[in-house]
Design a protein around this nucleic acid. Sequence first.
DNA 1: CTGGTCGGTATACGACGTAAACCATAGAGA
DNA 2: TCTCTATGGTTTACGTCGTATACCGACCAG
Lengths: 228, 228
Amino acid sequence: MVSKSSQSGAQPRVPLSRERVLRGALEFADAHGLALLTMRGLGEALGVEGMALYKHVANKDDLLEGIVDLVLSEVDLPSPGEAWKAELRRGALSTFEVLMRHPWACQLLVTGGGGSGPARWRQMDNILGTLRKGGFSVELTHHGFHVLDVYVKGVALGTVSFPLQKEDMAEVAEKFLREFPAADHPYLVEHISYHIDSGVLGEGDFEFGLDLLLDSLERLRDAAATGT
Amino acid sequence: MVSKSSQSGAQPRVPLSRERVLRGALEFADAHGLALLTMRGLGEALGVEGMALYKHVANKDDLLEGIVDLVLSEVDLPSPGEAWKAELRRGALSTFEVLMRHPWACQLLVTGGGGSGPARWRQMDNILGTLRKGGFSVELTHHGFHVLDVYVKGVALGTVSFPLQKEDMAEVAEKFLREFPAADHPYLVEHISYHIDSGVLGEGDFEFGLDLLLDSLERLRDAAATGT
DNA sequence: CTGGTCGGTATACGACGTAAACCATAGAGA
DNA sequence: TCTCTATGGTTTACGTCGTATACCGACCAG
């Protein structure tokens, strides 16, 4: 007969908090997707009445911004120093990986102004710092940052919102090829066929473009160093 | 007293159609933004009762896909041939420009699998064809296409979803700098200051990255031609 | 004992997408 | 000319969403 005396009961207390709400929302989104993440639903998942969440979160947008920053805080940051290229590469790959782990976050990241919490600031500062310490001018840093940033988010979002999984892609693509005006789109057909054959769906593609960008930036940096 | 006899009355007839619904939706979104584009609202704008739209459109998603493709049909397509680089550049700039004209379309384009109507097919086929005719291998075409595609959409979306206009940016940025832990983010501060000074907000940035990519692709193409 | 604050609940409102039933008109066939 | 039916618009209604507001129980300071 343990009860009443305020401890030892398993679930009844632990009275919620912004931290717990956000963490719960993140887990809920991972488990059921963004579409099902609703205030009432999240409340239920936390054993609480939906409206209770508003005691810890201003509104749903606030909550969404919160979990985006939580996701962003999972990424490995590049550290400013000599090996700028390797560091940026590592940071970009980590970002990509994290976004693949939380696919719903891509959408939020992109519709909500790209995130603007502490974790995002940290990430931005480290990327910018890595470029600057790597010998890039302020202007080139600015351009390089935006290009890289856009690229990572873009591929992540493209990968995530692509409607097909690798398994059923082949059959769906073949069916598609049968239905649409293939004769008018020879190159598209070739492209899709290539996708079917290689089965690739942005796996190595991400690194391909990333290295392309990093090499290009390096070239620009060196050109600026010798020229002008 | 002209009436009854089926013509000359100004507004009463012209009985709607999928075409008119989509066109109306596009204009509505341009005028009031995506958030206010609601079935009832669009109905009202078309002088009709909301539910009437379902006689011409399967559901709201169908409608959204429809207007995305309508937007996409406005872009200038590259034409396969010798001048692949100039053509791709032109096509990319046109896409960017169109997306700036219909900011809401970025969001749809990106959350909805990137569009998949006739206009999108046409665009893809032309870009792919331009690369192939420009001397790119199937693999390189595939990579190049994705990189360019992601880049254009990414910058467009980033530009659109950036919360500030050029006018108020300076003051907002300065206020921001005062509030957040500036000491811990020296490079971010430098970055923002640069934005304030140069006032630039992705204007020339888009072309910068675009040319970077095109040059890189050219280099890869030439390397593949001489090597292997 | 008392009163206030804090965290959770109950209830309610308005807006959304859309299913289902209904109804007006305009031709086509007799 | 009269009916029959398909087409396109209206009405009503349902369930779900975010959230404003009022409430209420437990805790803690005086």
